[in-house]
Design a binder for these strands. Sequence first.
DNA 1: GCCACAAGCTATGTCTATTAGCTTTCAAGC
DNA 2: GCTTGAAAGCTAATAGACATAGCTTGTGGC
Lengths: 194, 194
Amino acid sequence: MSPRAGLTTEAVVALALEIVDESGPEALTLAKIAERAGVAAPSLYKHVKGLADLRRLIDLRVVREMTETLRTAATGREGADAVAALADAYRAYLRRHPRRTQALATAPDRGDAELSTATHAVAEVAFAVLRPFGFDHAQAVHATRCLRAAVHGFAELEASGGFGRPEDVGQSFEVLKTMLVQGITDYARKQKKH
Amino acid sequence: MSPRAGLTTEAVVALALEIVDESGPEALTLAKIAERAGVAAPSLYKHVKGLADLRRLIDLRVVREMTETLRTAATGREGADAVAALADAYRAYLRRHPRRTQALATAPDRGDAELSTATHAVAEVAFAVLRPFGFDHAQAVHATRCLRAAVHGFAELEASGGFGRPEDVGQSFEVLKTMLVQGITDYARKQKKH
DNA sequence: GCCACAAGCTATGTCTATTAGCTTTCAAGC
DNA sequence: GCTTGAAAGCTAATAGACATAGCTTGTGGC
């Protein structure tokens, strides 16, 4: 299939992600990847356009993994149950991979259709989960944003060690979930009155 | 006072912050700062230990500015009103300086007492604002975390352009604030029953 | 068995941070 | 007013990063 060492774009991304998981995105360097791959640094350019391109591929992969995770968590559940499951899955993913937070917070460049579609997809899962609440379109957008913002913010602060105090973080997250479910329910109820 | 060009640590940080605001934290380089300061790159080491130290000083300054902003917003208000004002101020700061998000999400190194104190201070403002709700200590911690997570998450996603859809972001934030105020109120009420 | 191309390589250029050591300027003390 | 000392600048040099150019080699298809 390919001459010499069987390196592929996928393999390069996988190695890069290893480094990110171990030491954070700022520690990612082509030299380190090359070393792990057992290859000279310029050889990587056969599989990846450059460091910027590689970072983009990492983001793409993380976003898609997150979408898949959320989709899995949401299937077979509905309403408040589904919202809670979504929140738990999002947090769990970022607890498992604390250094991937940035990949989920950086917006795609305009013109990057592939990454745009991927990020859209994660919002789409939340959107679908909120459908049974009976929002109209604009309200569903607002509610999705709130849900995503709160859960992402929590997971990010937790992942970056931002919660210094000794109080149980899991309990804090339970409170957040309750607030969200209640808030979304109330928002839906308020809507139906008019 | 000082020989030659009046450069100080403060001035270096200010120039660095300019670059961060214009082009983002990843674009920050000592070479660029030196150019703007009209100085050779190694001269910066007379005012700053190195790039890592400079980044830390930037974080410190941003965190302190945010604390001050929040404190100002909260003074003279109470309860739900104060919570909303805090949220608005947080979001407004990050709208004004969208590329400073990272400075507010990175946890200080253990052993960095100065930065730890500073980050603690921003949580402290939220903590104070929640006092009138009558939480016990642990609950106040949970509520503070929720408030901070939701508002920070929203502001970050907005700042990084994560809200792709055309629906009004301000309106989404109003929904979030309502959810938070209501959620915090409910959480306080539930507590008092026992 | 040959050939084309993909996937490696080495060499090189440019940019970065950082250290070492020199020079200059200001200002304080006599 | 001169000296002197330290702070703040400089140049030179090292090491490591990304990136490009062009060469070499192995492998799969015919």
